[in-house]
């Protein structure tokens, strides 16, 4: 790359630790640090690293949280769907449809929801949180059922006889007879 060739020497040296040590003239090293600057943190002072067991416990806890998160919105959605009644209006229909489409999207993106927990060297693996994913899906299905129930109670599903009665043929009479009533 031609642009790399043009990088100034000081800029390269600035991030090169060995360059500092290689400087013969020690003045720059002996200069006192600016007030409030504590210098490089030593290994001793560093926070204690989380051991593998704790990390796993923490991740499982997090994973449960993610899995049960949709459950928290179930009571609210139930209440909302109860309060908005069964009359056919565009807004209740839209919310009910959203209750259907939201969970479907969430179920398809279940892996990406749990992704932040995976990928640690010593953390949990995908196999260990399958049941969490299943719980997550179950709660989403529950949300979906609320939406379905709402649509059903609005009478939007053609499940009753009255929805099909228009297609039923009326009683048929023999037409070779001509009947008149006066």
């Amino acid at each position: 790359m031609s642009s790399n060739d043009k990088i100034h020497g000081w800029a390269v040296n600035l991030i090169n630790d060995s360059y500092l040590k290689s400087i013969k003239d020690g003045t720059s090293r002996k200069l006192p640090s600016p007030p409030g600057f504590k210098g490089a943190i030593s290994k001793k002072d560093a926070a204690p690293s989380i051991n593998n067991k704790d990390l796993k416990d923490f991740q499982i806890q997090r994973s449960w949280e993610i899995a049960t998160q949709p459950a928290r919105s179930i009571p609210m959605n139930m209440f909302m769907s109860y309060m908005s009644g069964t009359s056919l209006q565009i807004i209740p229909i839209m919310t009910a449809l959203m209750l259907l489409s939201g969970p479907i999207k969430a179920i398809f993106s279940v892996k990406s929801n749990f992704k932040p927990l995976l990928g640690h060297k010593n953390g949990i693996t995908e196999n260990e949180i399958y049941c969490h994913m299943l719980v997550y899906i179950l709660f989403q299905v529950a949300l979906m059922l609320i939406g379905l129930h709402k649509l059903y109670s609005m009478g939007l599903f053609p499940t009753t006889k009255s929805d099909w009665v228009s297609w039923e043929k009326p009683i048929q009479m023999l037409d070779s007879l001509q009947i008149f009533m006066f």
């Binding site: 070779s176 007879l177 001509q178 009947i179 008149f180 009533m181 006066f182």
Partner: peptide, 13 residues
Amino acid sequence: DLLQNKVIFITDH
């Protein structure tokens, strides 16, 4: 041809 091939029923009162 109303009377052709058809049976007519009439109700009167």
